[in-house]
């Protein structure tokens, strides 16, 4: 069988100064009576044989190092991250993946694969009685006309769409500031099935994750937060396909001098957006650094500044489309 398992523990063991770094909480975070029956032992990475596997794994490795260093027991060696690579893809190795999940009870998986494999993987997870904490669809296009039209209503070239159990398991707020550092326009939409468990904080007033954004909330039938940079709230709604006539209240604005800069302090810097994504998905999977906003839906829209457009045009995205997962079995 060409399912290749190996251990990976490289990257930045020195960790960093994540603004919201905490102890990994490798237990389930659900709300129902059936949510806490599995105690998660360890974390693993499933690579689905995509062109982005290596970059994604770099981000995963860095995040795993950061989180391991943050455990607080300096003498303890972090458990090596187990990596499984599907050399010929999931569509060919569906039985092996089913068996892998069936024999890895107590494991939290971070996974990346193409969209076709993702459709099947979701089915395998359900059949295995697994827990799906987060599923993200990621698209970068090199549609030049869309780039130039982004000044109006066309969506950004880099888009992320997540369905997550709650903001606690959703990578958007970790990813957004790291993408800002790349000076490329992007959008992130996250839909949550359940709300974050209250820790006594209010949703407003906390913008440590992404101070370049102006943050708005709408308290209609669906509690929604929208974080915009370089676009108005109305433009942001339009770019995400949301109702422009929705009423919004601003609850956080950028600090002076913050706009357009990356302010999260850490030693690791992603080489590209896929690495940043792997990093964010893994931290969310480990329960580290996520922001508990009490909303059912969250969006980020960032438009690169005018002076950066040329740079963006020159380093236009390669065409990538794939899906990421955080699951437990």
């Amino acid at each position: 069988m060409d399912v290749n398992r190996r251990n990976l523990m490289k990257g930045i063991l020195a960790g960093g100064t994540l603004t919201m770094c905490g102890i990994p909480r490798l237990t389930t975070a659900g709300m129902g009576p059936d949510s806490d029956t599995v105690k998660i032992r360890t974390c693993a990475l499933l690579l689905g044989n995509t062109p982005v596997d290596d970059a994604f794994a770099n981000g995963v490795s860095a995040a795993y190092s950061v989180s391991s260093a943050g455990i607080g027991n300096a003498s303890a060696q972090p458990t090596p991250l187990e990596v499984v690579k599907l050399k010929s893809g999931l569509l060919v190795k569906v039985r092996q993946v089913s068996e892998l999940l069936a024999t890895s009870r107590g494991m939290r998986w971070v996974a990346v694969m193409d969209d076709a494999s993702a459709a099947v993987f979701t089915e395998i997870v359900r059949t295995a009685g697994g827990r799906l904490l987060s599923r993200g669809t990621h698209v970068s296009s090199r549609n030049v006309s869309a780039y130039s039209a982004f000044q109006s209503d066309s969506p950004p070239l880099l888009r992320h769409l997540w369905a997550s159990v709650s903001p606690e398991q959703s990578p958007g707020a970790i990813l957004a500031p790291r993408l800002v550092g790349n000076h490329k326009s992007f959008s992130i939409v996250e839909d949550f099935l359940g709300e974050a468990r209250s820790n006594g904080e209010t949703s407003s007033g906390s913008h440590l994750f992404a101070p370049v954004f102006r943050s708005y909330e709408s308290t209609g039938p669906l509690a929604t937060h929208l974080h915009c940079s370089g676009v108005s709230v109305s433009e942001g709604c339009g770019l995400l396909g949301w109702n422009r006539s929705q009423r919004w209240t601003e609850f956080s604005s950028p600090r002076d001098g913050d706009e357009g800069t990356q302010t999260v302090q850490e030693n690791w810097h992603p080489a590209n957006w896929v690495e940043a994504l792997g990093y964010a998905v893994t931290l969310a999977g480990l329960g580290v650094g996520t922001l508990q906003e009490y909303c059912a839906r969250r969006g980020f829209v960032y438009r690169a500044r005018q002076g950066e457009w040329r740079n963006m045009y020159e380093s236009i995205f390669s065409e990538e489309r794939f899906t990421s997962f955080i699951v437990e079995v």
Binding site: G32, S35, T122, R131, L132, A163, V165, Q169
Partner: peptide
Amino acid sequence: VLTAPERLAPYIK
């Protein structure tokens, strides 16, 4: 009897 969101999530997509 599953009601936890993470158990129901694989049914929704």
